[in-house]
């Protein structure tokens, strides 16, 4: 039947060999190192990024302070609006910064004229984007630690145990993988269409808004009646929002409504999530890989990442066909 309508589907899956896997890591390491060296040579840009982050923190602290009186208690959230905004600023200092830095990876290589040399030397657009994403993560984590952590410490928002640190890293990794997929899609559009600055800005803004950086996710609850448990589904399918929300809770463990060991129960990581589950309709037992919701989210982000990689491959093929791979 397939042949009769003139469509031939060729399944051509090649299992990567150990040599191929090692080669991929070697190339990724080289691209990441190259990006890091170049990034740290633009010192003025680093200064501007750090300053911009500091301004963001200051502005959102003021906004949080102004909003404080009307918001937190009525929603049953454990943190103040100032904490709400500082943690979101820290979270998106890393992710918006990483995305903003990475989305220009392809167009910058094209502008420099380096794309052709990279591709013919086995450095694929995927390696360029992922290498840039990793190096940008390192850079923006440094900026976050220097600029955002001090105000959190000043406000008494500190990680109290190693278990908390592990849980924070885990949810950060989930968001990081999801954002990598999203960044791959946004960046790879530059393989075909050369002026994508506004599109990138819109994409980053949407993620930031949908991640709950500006408005508490609980205020979305009533508008999402399509799902039986709207917020929990939203958090599962859009992990950056989950990551940001749990980080806010994880960094407020010592407050009465936060995560506290006084009612630990069966939780493996030593915290109780009853209050969190009540607010968001989730069923988290602990923030470890043994939790079904965490596992489900890992599956979702890896599938999303896989689809993103396929899309970049497809766009690379189209770019080679159209002759737009190396031109700006």
């Amino acid at each position: 039947m397939i042949a009769s309508i003139g469509v031939i589907v060729e399944i051509n899956i090649r299992v990567p060999t150990i040599k191929k896997i090692l080669q991929t890591f070697r190339i990724l390491f080289a691209v990441t190192k190259r990006s890091l060296i170049v990034d740290f040579r633009y010192k003025f840009q680093l200064f501007i990024e750090a300053t911009w982050t500091a301004i963001n923190v200051a502005v959102f602290v003021l906004l949080g302070a102004a909003w404080q009186a009307s918001a937190t208690e009525s929603d049953g959230l454990p943190y103040t609006m100032v904490t709400f905004f500082i943690i979101a600023t820290g979270f998106f200092t890393v992710f918006s910064g990483v995305m903003e830095t990475t989305v220009t990876a392809i167009s910058e290589e094209n502008q420099l004229g380096t794309m052709g040399f990279l591709v013919t030397n086995s450095v694929s657009p995927i390696a360029i984007i992922v290498g840039r994403y990793i190096s940008a993560t390192v850079r923006w984590l440094i900026i976050m630690v220097v600029i955002v952590i001090p105000p959190l410490i000043i406000r008494g928002v500190t990680p109290s145990t190693m278990k908390l640190l592990w849980s924070s890293i885990l949810v950060f990794v989930i968001a990081w993988i999801f954002m990598l997929g999203f960044t791959l899609i946004l960046t790879s559009i530059a393989l075909i269409f050369k002026k994508t600055t506004t599109l990138n800005r819109v994409g980053i803004y949407i993620v930031r808004f949908a991640g709950g950086a500006f408005v508490p996710l609980t205020s979305f609850d009533d508008s999402m009646t399509l799902f039986a448990k709207p917020l929990s589904n939203y958090l599962i399918w859009f992990p950056p929002a989950f990551a940001l929300e749990t980080l806010r809770w994880l960094f407020t463990v010592n407050t009465s409504k936060g995560l506290t060991c006084s009612t630990c129960g069966p939780s493996k990581d030593g915290f109780a999530y009853e209050n969190f589950n009540t607010i968001f309709g989730t069923g988290i037992t602990d923030l470890t890989l043994s939790d079904p919701m965490i596992r489900q989210m890992f599956l979702i982000v890896f599938i999303f990442l896989g689809l993103s990689l396929l899309l970049v491959e497809k766009l690379t093929t189209i770019a080679r066909k159209w002759g737009t791979l190396e031109f700006y």
Binding site: I37, V38, Y42, G113, G116, T120, S122
Partner: peptide
């Protein structure tokens, strides 16, 4: 790509 080398003035390298 592993078997060929292509050099052209159109191809450049990272100048930083």
């Amino acid at each position: 790509r592993e078997k060929i080398s292509f050099v052209s003035p159109a191809l450049d390298f990272q100048r930083k």
